[in-house]
Design a protein around this nucleic acid. Structure first.
Length: 349
DNA sequence: AAGTCGGGGCT
DNA sequence: AGCCCAGACTT
């Protein structure tokens, strides 16, 4: 039996039962694929359930506000996915009368849809022969064929796409694509795969050469930038606080946060006192302040480490633009802010 | 071709 | 604490 048949047989015996596998509706397939970009099933599944419940059709998603979509996406990360999801929903609903593009080439034109997602939707929803190459496929193919070309190099991207395109089952592309990804996710795992029970272990090049732990090959690591954040958690006598929207490019675009002052080092209370926050943030109001966390809270993104202090600013009455503290959970915020809100007991004030 | 964009999990 | 995982887009 060849690679293709062993793989699809393994899949029919071992596939997980997942909600997006019970449908051919391109809206659901597309939604699941956007959620699962850079995200494992375990983390994405509850978000998928929330989204289809809240937005059963592409029209429901299109008619939502971006803020509502971001709120539902909160905690999943890579928030440009949510913004692009909303943009594409509006495009499909209002420009294409709710009908998704039904082929790889046209799917690729949608915002937030790259080579992987276009192939996934084209094959799974429309049975087009379009090979998917996600992180799982890179791992399976590099190990099975002993390919040492770095998977994130220009050559590697082309080489693996070509190989997957040659291997794909022309009769059942949807099943083949899902089979090879599922195989990578649960059998040919990144760490300590159980090769003794693998249906491909007799012909796996990496296993024969003891190379499993060294494949796939990936180039370089990004250098991590350190930043120092000071959030101003303002509280007045009417239980109001201040939130600001992050409108500029960069992390967390269009999410909300407490007013932020970035510094070039971790500030002491004395250094914080010298900041001119009275004029810049507080409309010239008098205030008392205290530091919530003595040790910096370190929030790690893939390419930035955020050393964070939350300063509690108490004042008599905040400016008009303030919001009621009890409304705070309606706003989409980064996990760093959400965790603080959960840990900080506003009721004690 | 290199850099940006989150968050979770494992050790 | 450090390391790994996983696509699309911008520069």
């Amino acid at each position: 039996m060849d690679f293709k048949n062993k793989l699809t047989n393994w899949y029919s015996d071992n596939k997980r039962s997942l909600p997006w596998r019970n449908t051919k509706n391109p809206y659901y397939i597309w939604l699941s694929e956007i959620i699962l970009q850079q995200t494992q099933v375990k983390q994405g599944l509850p978000y998928y359930e929330d989204f289809i419940k809240q937005y059963p059709t592409v029209f429901d998603l299109a008619n939502a506000s971006e803020e509502e979509v971001l709120k539902l996406w909160q905690g999943l990360g890579y928030y440009s996915r949510a913004r692009n999801l909303h943009t594409t929903a509006k495009h499909v609903a209002f420009e294409l009368d709710g009908r998704f593009p039904n082929n790889y080439k046209d799917l690729l034109k949608l915002k937030g849809v790259g080579d992987y997602t276009a192939s996934a939707v084209a094959s799974i929803a429309f049975n087009e022969v379009a090979a998917v190459v996600d992180g799982n496929v890179y791992r399976v193919l590099s190990r099975y064929y002993g390919i040492i070309t770095p998977i994130n190099s220009t050559d590697g991207i082309k080489e693996f796409k070509k190989l997957a395109s040659n291997l794909i089952d022309k009769e059942q592309p949807a099943t083949f694509n899902q089979a090879i990804m599922e195989f990578g996710a649960t059998q040919c795992k990144p760490k300590n795969p159980n090769c003794t029970i693998c249906p491909l272990n007799e012909s796996c090049m990496a296993l024969q050469k003891n190379m499993i732990e060294f494949l796939p090959v990936k180039l370089k690591k990004t250098k991590v930038k350190t930043r120092f954040f000071n959030f101003l958690v303002c509280i007045d006598n009417n239980k109001n606080t201040l939130l600001e929207k992050r409108t500029s490019k960069g992390i967390w675009q269009n999410l909300y946060q407490f007013p932020l002052i970035e510094s070039n080092k971790s500030l002491s209370s004395e250094e914080f006192h010298l900041l001119n926050i009275k004029d810049s943030v507080l409309d010239n109001l008098n205030f008392d302040y205290s530091l919530y966390n003595i040790e910096d809270i370190v929030h790690k993104l893939s390419h930035q480490h955020l050393y964070t202090k939350f300063w509690i600013i108490e004042t008599k009455e905040l400016p008009k633009k303030s919001i009621a503290i009890k409304e705070i959970k309606k706003y989409p915020v980064p996990v760093l802010i959400s965790s603080f809100i959960d840990a900080f007991n506003f009721n004690d004030l």
